[in-house]
Design a protein around this nucleic acid. Structure first.
Lengths: 350, 350
DNA sequence: CTGAAAGCGCTTACAG
DNA sequence: CTGAAAGCGCTTACAG
């Protein structure tokens, strides 16, 4: 099957089909200006000879570079979460520099929807060939998606929670399942008692995300017929004082609480509180891995972190666009990220 | 700093240094036949102009392919473990087919050291430019390493437990730390009792590997001043009957046993036993992820699996050789694999 | 020790 | 609609 050394090129195809190189090139790239007859003839020869284009030669001779747009929140926001996908994007870009891939980043403040719209307009009018973005602004982003569709600019979603039909690829996080996982881990730590699902509001979190995780927790507990119950608490204004007051009260009124679940990356705030608090051990599970969490992992105040390889999401996104735009490969429509579990004893290797 | 569009090539360097293209090429590749004076002049220009070779052009014009040798056990052995690194190797090879990378696989039966030596000889006399191997046959492999050193064939170790000085790169698994991690997980499941460290002997496991994991467990328990103790049991001939007899007796004599730790990938054998056994829940932690484990993860008979991304190890190994041999990049001397934790609730996304 | 020229497998104007 | 030719940035004989 693998015809070994005999690498056959466009020249061989041209000779066999009795046409010029340029014609074969036109057929390969589906460019206009070839008669149906010729096209079919060439395609048949390509098929028969098993011709595979040589990307290196292709890229070497092609003049223009490929520009990928990136639309994400400022890295200074959301505890700096977006720094990681961006790092992954940059890493991939460096690896692919040979292929003349450029990244154009468009960032915005999350609570500033005027700015979001401005950046979207900039993107529409820019010379990008592909786009990486996050799925969290359902409304504003429709125009952009529509525009990309018309211009045939492939889009890749990262940090996505639903499968986008028009996207080239959605890099997804299984939210419900991450809730199940958290519940399973709590269930290893205690047999009965209560899990406090504590929502420290961040502009980026939609109710969807929290809700799915919460459902996952309850789903697991039901499935296991566990004696553990859950209770949800939302804190909007989460400075240290508020947390102190609200949590002290909640824990006092509900002595059955043995675990706290933070469905976003704000877990360090709560760890800070729990550390100072006297009393029985309370198990703590959160999301995402930040420097400020290390101290609490070490002390086992944070017991588990559930992570979704944010860096790899950015990295993969660039590669998927690269495969589509440059290698002209088929790309899977959705990539589901693993649910990584981090503890004191394995975070160092993450 | 990034001189943008102005990509400067060998031609620009040649012109600036007032020499021919071929001379610049000779300098770049450190080939013989250039006077020191010319060489220095060219190097200076390269430095000043910030010349970066274009790998695509380089590869396109170079005629020969790069052959990478792989020395690993038969994939039919060790519960099929080696299938995974091999898959990773093949995946990388396919991705890099454009760079004319070929893989030559040399496999052997693990208990057949005559065959190992034969394959080593074959490797030495082969036309490989680089080598991927595993570090588990310290003795036989010395000759091979020495030979590779002399011929300047870079070696990458996978599934490695020590850092090899002469290797291009060792892809390592933190063994001690994985033991610590297992202990931490057990400690979440129960506060006191005994962990049975059960060693089902496999030809590949050296005492080192098991010992380090065991030390990790004990290290964690001491550090935590835990009330949990450990007990070690070795079963050499592990057919179903032996396991049944030995384990039934051991568990009867040691009713404090609440957890079983399997330091290799044989955990399904024990899960099979524990499933049929009546009595209190016994927590079970093992290594590596195989199809036969799924059933037991689902039933939570196996509680946690510690995995080391075997596929990625093979994949990375090829990429490191690729970077070294073809891209002429510097390669990190050691890569430490993460300790992934798998449970019923996240294995599907692995 | 040094250089001129052909060629790697494509793409891209340009001419017909 | 089709083709001949130059060029992408290197490497590789070959000649001197």
């Amino acid at each position: 099957m693998d015809n070994e050394d005999q690498i056959i090129g466009i020249k061989d195809v041209a000779k066999a089909a009795n046409v010029a190189l340029a014609t074969v090139d036109r057929v390969i790239h589906n460019r206009a200006g070839v008669s149906i007859k010729t096209k079919e003839k060439v395609l048949k020869v390509i098929e028969k000879m098993g011709y595979k284009p040589n990307i290196m030669a292709s890229n070497l001779s092609k003049s223009k570079k490929t520009i990928i747009g990136v639309l994400i929140p400022d890295i200074s926001e959301s505890s700096g979460y977006w720094e990681f996908p961006l790092q992954g994007i940059i890493k991939a870009q460096k690896e692919l520099a040979q292929y003349r891939i450029k990244i154009k980043t468009f960032t915005f403040k999350q609570d500033n929807s005027k700015e979001v719209r401005k950046k979207i307009l900039e993107l529409i009018n820019s010379d990008i060939q592909g786009l990486i973005l996050t799925s969290k602004f359902a409304d504003e982003i429709q125009i952009l998606l529509q525009d990309c569709k018309e211009k045939e600019r492939p889009c890749v979603f990262i940090d996505s929670n639903i499968r986008k039909m028009d996207a080239l690829c959605s890099i997804q996080q299984p939210l419900y399942e991450s809730g199940e996982l958290a519940a399973q881990l709590f269930n290893y730590c205690f047999d009965e008692g209560e899990i406090l699902i504590l929502h420290l509001k961040d502009t980026m979190d939609t109710e969807d995300i929290i809700g799915l995780k919460e459902n996952g927790i309850n789903g697991y507990l039901q499935e296991k017929k566990s004696l553990i119950t859950t209770r949800t608490l939302v804190i909007t204004d989460f400075n240290e004082d508020t947390i102190d007051t609200v949590l002290t009260q909640t824990l006092k009124e509900n002595p059955k609480i043995k675990g706290v679940f933070i469905p976003n990356s704000k877990v360090a705030h709560i760890a800070n509180y729990l550390e100072k608090r006297a009393g029985e051990k309370i198990y703590l599970i959160g999301y995402d891995f930040f420097k400020e969490d290390i101290e609490y992992l070490e002390k086992e105040i944070i017991d588990f972190l559930i992570c979704q390889r944010p860096e790899e999401q950015g990295y993969q996104a660039v590669y998927k666009l690269f495969e589509n735009l440059i290698l002209k490969k088929a790309v899977e429509n959705e990539i589901i990220m693993p649910l990584d579990i981090l503890t004191k004893k394995n975070y160092k290797y993450y």
